[in-house]
Structures are given as structure tokens and as C-alpha cells.
């Protein structure tokens, strides 16, 4: 995440939110709001999904069904058939109930309606749940579809950039010349190899001293010899100064590839690694500015 740029002490929250939204748009590529995603999910699902697999009008159908006015549910007990708000009438009905039962048995009717009432309540409870599940599924599927599309675009973009980088790297390798007889790169001393006072240690110490000297003088043109040759890089400060290596190749240099003043006349080298890989060369003592 990048930082916000607030230029004054007066904080404008809307401005900050504008910056945040702009950053989200940059990251996401295509900026769809939640409403837009829902709209896409509702209306144009077939654009993102296989229309044979998912019905794009599913949500619409659910909504239509849901919005259709359902009759209110009711509680149904064994006394419901005989209920009334008038106490007198209720009394009369209760009195006449034995007579009614001579003609038919209302109990199964009450039980059936009681069960139906329970089923109605259960259905009313389940329906919003179904709707929510379906709605969320469709929205998330749409969101994923959009995300996959964006990722595909990014992948294509990255692939083309990778191709371009590879082609450029090959072109640069073709320009570099190698010189036989070069020394392999210096390795940092290890506990097993670096023994104080040993010949190897002395030689490495000497090289280091020379490198330090070179570092101090490698920036200016013609700072050393009358040839005006500037050595920047190899054996000096590996990858320490990208600006130095860029001097010759423009933007091509990154890392330890060394250039000499103009266009990379790197001598080929011996030592087993001269098979196409540019390896560091031994610093020349021919007045190239290394030795004062």
C-alpha cells in the first residue's frame, strides 16, 4: 500500500477517500462498485458464465416469487374453530360442541391445519434463507468471473513483458565480448580458507586495497590516465552503483555487468568460465585510472 499525500493540516476526508478509491481503481484495474457487481449479477450473468450451466434470471425469479404477497400465517389450535371475541357466542359454541361432534369429527381437521400452520412458518423461515444463499452465490460468482478476467489480463501483460525482457537480455549478451585469461571473481574469505598471513590472504588483501582505491576515483571521465578511460564496475563495487553501469548501455545495465567508458569492451577471460557468461576481469594496471 502506498502512503496518502496530505498537503495541509486541514484534513479533507472526502479528498482522502477520493485518493483511496483512486488507488483501489488502480489496483483492481476495472472499478466495479458493489452495486454494479450486483447489477451485473442480476442482469447480464450470461456474459460471465456459461449460460447453459446457470440460469441468469434466477435471482429475478426468486425476487418475483418472494415479492408476491403471501397470506399471513396463523396459529391453529384445537379451539381455533370455535374462537370468537364475543364471550356469549363462545359459551354457546362450547355448549353445542358435543352436538356438533355427533355429525362429524373436527379433530383431524384441527390437527391437519395445525400442521399446515407449522409448515407455513417453516417455509416462511426458509424462503429468505434460500434467497440469500442464491443471491450471494450469484454475486460471488460474478465477482469471481470479473476477477478471473482481470487476472487473465494481468497475466497476459506480464507474459508480454517477460518476453520483452528475455529478448533484450539476449540482445545484450550478443553485444558483450569475452576475453580469455580473465581471473574468476573474488570470493569472500571463509573461516577455512582465510588464514591470517597466508599467501592467499595477502593476495586478497592486496586486491581489496586496490579496489578501495579504484572506488574513490571511478566516477569522473579521464580521472586517471590520459586515455580518458573510466572503469566502472567489475571487480570494483559489484552492483553497488547502477548509475555507473548505465553509463555505457543506457538502461541495460543492472547488476555487476561492467562497461568501460563507451560500449562494453569487456575482455574475454580464461579460468574456465569463459563459455558465454560475462565474468569479472582482473583490474588492469595499465593506467586505466585504477592505480594512482
Amino acid at each position: 500500500m502506498t502512503d496518502l499525500h496530505i498537503r495541509s493540516d486541514n484534513v479533507d476526508v472526502e479528498q482522502i477517500m477520493g485518493q483511496i478509491r483512486a488507488r483501489i481503481r488502480e489496483k483492481r484495474g476495472v472499478d466495479y462498485t458493489e452495486e454494479e457487481i450486483k447489477e451485473l449479477a442480476n442482469a447480464r450473468l450470461e456474459k460471465f458464465l456459461d449460460p447453459r450451466g446457470v440460469r441468469s434470471d434466477l435471482i429475478e425469479q426468486f425476487r418475483t416469487k418472494r415479492e408476491a404477497s403471501l397470506p399471513p400465517n396463523f396459529t391453529f389450535e384445537d379451539t381455533t374453530l370455535f374462537e370468537t371475541h364475543r364471550p356469549f357466542l363462545r359459551f354457546i359454541r362450547r355448549m353445542l360442541m358435543p352436538i356438533l361432534k355427533l355429525f362429524f369429527n373436527p379433530t383431524p381437521l384441527s390437527e391437519a391445519l395445525h400442521i399446515q400452520s407449522k409448515l407455513n412458518a417453516q417455509q416462511a423461515w426458509l424462503e429468505p434463507l434460500h434467497y440469500e444463499v442464491m443471491h450471494n452465490l450469484v454475486v460471488e460468482t460474478t465477482r469471481l468471473g470479473i476477477e478471473v478476467k482481470n487476472l487473465k489480463m494481468r497475466l497476459e501483460s506480464m507474459s508480454s513483458r517477460l518476453d520483452f525482457d528475455e529478448r533484450r537480455a539476449r540482445a545484450l549478451e550478443g553485444v558483450v565480448q569475452y576475453r580469455a585469461g580473465a581471473v574468476p571473481p573474488l570470493q569472500p574469505p571463509t573461516a577455512s580458507t582465510a588464514v591470517a598471513g597466508s599467501p592467499l590472504e595477502t593476495a586478497q588483501q592486496e586486491r581489496r586495497t586496490r579496489r578501495r582505491r579504484r572506488r574513490g576515483r571511478k566516477t569522473g571521465f579521464g580521472s586517471g590516465s590520459g586515455e580518458g578511460e573510466t572503469r566502472t564496475g567489475f571487480g570494483g563495487a559489484p552492483a553497488a552503483a547502477p548509475s555507473e553501469s548505465r553509463r555505457g548501455f543506457g538502461e541495460a545495465g543492472s547488476g555487476p555487468a561492467e562497461t568501460r567508458g563507451g560500449f562494453g569492451e569487456v575482455p574475454p577471460q580464461s579460468g574456465g568460465s569463459g563459455e558465454g557468461e560475462p565474468v569479472p576481469t582482473k583490474p588492469r594496471g595499465d593506467g586505466g585510472g585504477e592505480v594512482g
Binding site: V13, M17, I20
Partner: peptide, 12 residues
Amino acid sequence: SGAGLYYETYEE
């Protein structure tokens, strides 16, 4: 107030 931010989506 200039003392709070707000969000409407996860990204925000």
C-alpha cells in the same frame, strides 16, 4: 469533523 474515514466495500 474531518476525524474519520468510511468504507462501503472490503477494499475500502
